[in-house]
Design a protein around this nucleic acid. Structure first.
Lengths: 149, 149
DNA sequence: TATTGTTATACTCTATAACTATA
DNA sequence: TATAGTTATAGAGTATAACAATA
């Protein structure tokens, strides 16, 4: 069986490999999603952080990092930006004064509501291309691959 | 139905979204693959370029870019590095002296053979976690998502 | 005028290490 | 000693614009 071609170019073993397909899909999906989110001056990572804090009010910064797979070093400037824009509030925990307790502000919730509408619509478009059931299977498979080893 | 939790943290809508799952899977797969490839002093993108040139001897640089989704500006330093290491040969096309004809050298083929063995083994491990048939379906879905709009 | 390849440059995402203040 | 958060920094990956040589 000859290797499938892309625009006349043979990809050889690359054509059957998960890693390559993942890269191409991730780039395409994030490019369109980032463009959509730019109307709110939000990046995908920032929206993710807003969602998780909103779903878990009073969560510590390090827990948000762990849930989203962020390094804490990269989380600090991100959440500082959100705080500066008045979208999240940070305060020290009274029980452990090292920890930062995070909350989405009223303004943050307002922006989040609007951004989530766009997010959902984007996901609907993706899902429509694969079918609802296949999309759910895809997500489950991706989560499996995301597990360490 | 409550939103699924990850380590006690509710991800809310993120849990059902393709974009987030793609990001997590891509990061995990590329991290382990990059580590494996480092024994050959190759990055995933460099291996991809070697594979495509090997599969299509005499291809022009711009065709490799298009096949792999590279910007030509980013391709230039990558292929220059491969040429400097004696893994690929570049020569001007006699028909169109603007174009660069690319070929994998003997040393390049030798390295490619070794790297492909590791590549295949990595893919086998991924595939084993999902099952062969499911993996093929996954790749097909990812290619669908990678299409523009 | 358009195309191939190069250079310069910038932005995002991710990573490590060293620091602080607490515990 | 260990942990939560910060800062500084570096490395990939990707993007645009301007340019030279050629078509």
């Amino acid at each position: 069986m000859p290797a499938p071609a892309a625009g006349g170019v043979r990809l050889g073993p690359l054509a059957h490999h998960v890693g390559h397909a993942l890269r191409r899909a991730q780039l395409a999906v994030f490019t369109s999603f980032t463009a959509l989110l730019s109307q709110f001056d939000l990046k995908p990572g920032e929206l993710g952080v807003l969602i998780v804090i909103d779903q878990n009010p009073g969560l510590r910064a390090i827990d948000v990092c762990q849930a989203l797979g962020f390094q804490k070093a990269n989380f600090a400037p991100l959440v500082r930006g959100l705080a500066r824009r008045g979208l999240v509030r940070r305060r020290s925990s009274t029980r452990d004064r090292r920890a930062q307790i995070l909350q989405v502000t009223v303004a943050g919730k307002r922006l989040l509501t609007r951004a989530l509408r766009v997010h959902e619509e984007h996901e609907r478009l993706l899902s429509a291309r694969l079918g609802a059931a296949a999309t759910q299977r895809l997500i489950a498979q991706l989560i499996t691959l995301a597990q360490p080893d």
